[in-house]
């Protein structure tokens, strides 16, 4: 077991039942897909690196902390992680796993090549599982956080297809400029995952929709 594995999940706070309140059950299909993907990643891996967008590129330590959202709940010990990494930490805390874990933030504007190199370095460690906490465009419909942009759907369709195909090349070809304009924060983290794979992955996508105007993807990648 030395090839890397990957799981892609959304960075949406509403995945957390304590934040979703009474509507938690309404997104059961999404949450189930996420749980399955994370469980599978943990099964396949010897250590987990959580990767998501952050204010700076580099390693982070800390824990999840929802107090910023108005719910006084936090993980055990440590500073508040950026949202994407906190979601990853929280997802891992829901599982009975003792796997070593680390957190790696990547700036939204890192170039595709920089992301690829970061991923390549992370993937060097045998048995690494990359938990990619990342979203598609936040401009998928008129009620979306960034309102509707007609380019959002084709952009996300390309992301979904690239994930489904297990193609690092297609992920690395996503436009930095388009992703920025379409508020697709996942671009850089996906490209980090792509960098960890030196060829096509055995891949599946179990969720690909934008129920609240933000593109959510759940996908599993295994080195072939």
């Amino acid at each position: 077991m030395s090839r890397p594995s990957g799981a892609v999940v959304p960075s949406a706070p509403l995945l957390v039942p304590a934040l979703a309140g009474g509507s938690a059950h309404l997104d059961a299909d999404l949450r189930e897909a996420v749980d399955t993907a994370v469980c599978q990643l943990v099964d396949w891996s010897e250590s987990i690196v959580v990767v998501g967008c952050a204010a700076r590129t580099g390693a982070y330590t800390g824990t999840w902390d929802w107090s910023g959202f108005g719910v006084q709940q936090r993980g055990p010990d440590g500073a508040r992680l950026p949202l994407s990494l906190g979601i990853g930490a929280w997802l891992l805390d829901q599982l009975p796993t003792q796997l070593p874990r680390s957190f790696f933030g990547v700036r939204e504007d890192e170039t595709a090549e920089a992301c690829r190199l970061l991923g390549e370095a992370i993937g060097q460690e045998p048995g690494t599982g990359l938990l990619i906490v990342a979203d598609g465009s936040a401009r998928r419909d008129v009620k979306a956080p960034g309102h509707l942009d007609s380019r959002a759907e084709p952009f996300d369709r390309e992301v979904g297809d690239a994930l489904r195909e297990g193609s690092p090349e297609r992920l690395l070809a996503l436009s930095v400029e388009d992703a920025r304009e379409l508020l697709a924060q996942g671009r850089a983290p996906w490209q980090v995952m792509a960098g960890a794979f030196d060829g096509p992955a055995r891949a599946s996508v179990s969720y690909d929709a934008a129920p609240y105007g933000v593109g959510y993807f759940v996908s599993s990648w295994a080195g072939s």
Binding site: A12, A20, F69, V214
Partner: peptide
């Protein structure tokens, strides 16, 4: 009482 729906700003 908690929210019956908690989505605003959380998607």
């Amino acid at each position: 009482a908690d929210l019956v729906v908690g989505r605003r700003g959380l998607a």
